[in-house]
Simulated scan of single mutants.
Amino acid sequence: MLQVWRGTDRYRGGDEAAGIDTRHAFSFSGFYDPDNVGFGQLVACNEERLAPGAGFPEHPHRDVEIVTWVVEGELEHIDSTGRTSRVRAGDVQRMGAGSGVRHIERNAGSGPLCFVQMWLVPGSFGSGTDGQSGSREPEYEVVHGIADGTPFAVPHTEAMMHVRRLADGERTAVPDAAWVYVHVVRGVAEIGSGPADEDEASPGGAERERLSAGDAARITDARDLEARGAGGPVEMLMWEMQAEPGYG
């Protein structure tokens, strides 16, 4: 089943006076919808827009894997383990909160900053590498300039992110998986199966869905699907997930 969630229907958050505009795909912070709390192991997909100098003061996380994709600008990260970094467009950042970590995120550049931040619940919630709840030390990594098509596996989960950049009319396979989440970062894409002719439906009667920047597709039991650029360059983040969160 393929369900489209439009970017215009995201929950709006942030602090306009502080230069922060946040758009939530799932229940988050002060927004709660019992029918929209996550998909597979993904429990947050936030589009963040920060004005120069704006940011999030030091705050805590634990038992969550946080993956950040910078769309435009420069993101500064500082955390309680002493790590600092500058993350730029095309870079992917992962912070494994483990037993607990505090961090600061802010716009370190002179222009606007836009990034997509995605949170995943580990496959075994609260478990460390030694099997003791909450015992895993925080982890951090940045991949600079990740290449198109390079899979990014998230440790402690059964999730993998694929970066896809397509020209107009170019196609790529959607991963076969129990749960697939596709977020369109920029451009326009079509997702479906079968012929690319706009007048034809996909086999089985399922028509292709057209997604613009900010839109997302949530697909369960994905099989034999493809995505194609539909009018200029398109950039997508595809999450391939084989499990839901585990608690224990």
Score class of each variant (00 low, 15 high):
29 S>F: 05
65 E>A: 11
31 F>L: 04
67 V>P: 01
74 E>A: 13
65 E>Y: 08
23 R>K: 15
34 P>K: 09
73 G>F: 02
20 I>R: 15
40 G>K: 01
61 H>N: 10
54 A>T: 09
42 L>H: 02
58 E>N: 09
24 H>V: 02
27 S>K: 05
45 C>T: 12
75 L>Y: 00
27 S>I: 13
40 G>L: 09
34 P>N: 13
55 G>L: 09
72 E>C: 05
62 R>L: 09
33 D>V: 13
32 Y>W: 12
23 R>H: 14
74 E>G: 05
32 Y>E: 01
37 V>D: 00
53 G>N: 10
54 A>C: 11
23 R>D: 03
37 V>E: 11
70 V>S: 03
48 E>I: 10
30 G>E: 13
72 E>T: 15
24 H>R: 07
72 E>L: 11
53 G>L: 10
75 L>C: 12
74 E>S: 10
34 P>D: 10
44 A>S: 11
35 D>V: 09
49 R>S: 15
53 G>F: 07
35 D>Y: 14
19 G>H: 06
71 V>S: 06
25 A>G: 05
68 T>I: 10
49 R>T: 14
44 A>Q: 07
59 H>G: 01
48 E>L: 07
30 G>C: 04
69 W>I: 09
51 A>Y: 02
28 F>D: 01
62 R>H: 12
40 G>S: 04
72 E>W: 02
38 G>T: 04
76 E>G: 06
65 E>H: 10
46 N>E: 06
47 E>A: 12
70 V>Y: 00
39 F>I: 07
61 H>G: 07
50 L>G: 03
48 E>D: 15
75 L>D: 04
44 A>P: 00
72 E>P: 05
34 P>A: 11
63 D>M: 10
64 V>M: 13
67 V>S: 02
50 L>M: 09
60 P>D: 10
43 V>I: 15
36 N>C: 06
51 A>P: 00
69 W>M: 03
63 D>K: 05
48 E>Q: 15
59 H>W: 08
62 R>F: 06
24 H>T: 01
52 P>H: 11
62 R>C: 07
36 N>L: 10
52 P>Q: 13
47 E>W: 08
62 R>D: 05
21 D>W: 12
